[in-house]
Amino acid sequence: MSELMGLKAKLGLDVFKHDKEAHIKIKPGMEKDPRLKRAVWVCPAGLYSENDQGEVELTIDGCLECGTCRIACGIEVLEWNYPNGGCGVQFRFG
């Protein structure tokens, strides 16, 4: 299909295995930190969004584990780890 598909639909094509906990967490109190707002722009999976209160929220489902948010925002605002073994995205083509 040459017409565009939404990001959610695109991520829906990937194989994900559910993890029991979120492997990336916004550190408490950092929700409004300007460094965190970069994630809204840089995340290739579009998993970060800003709510009406100006807080950044993260939906971990669909994470491609690329690490862009860790590099852009830094580990002062994000608690960042890879998913547990055998969890998360499993690329078939890569």
Binding site: L13, D14, P44, A45, C66
Partner: peptide, 21 residues
């Protein structure tokens, strides 16, 4: 959506989306 690209992938089915640093 660029015309240079759209015609090359026309009719193709996306089967995976990936990202990496």
């Amino acid at each position: 959506l660029r015309p240079e690209i759209a015609r090359l992938i026309k009719g193709g089915e996306t089967s995976e989306y990936s990202a990496h640093v």
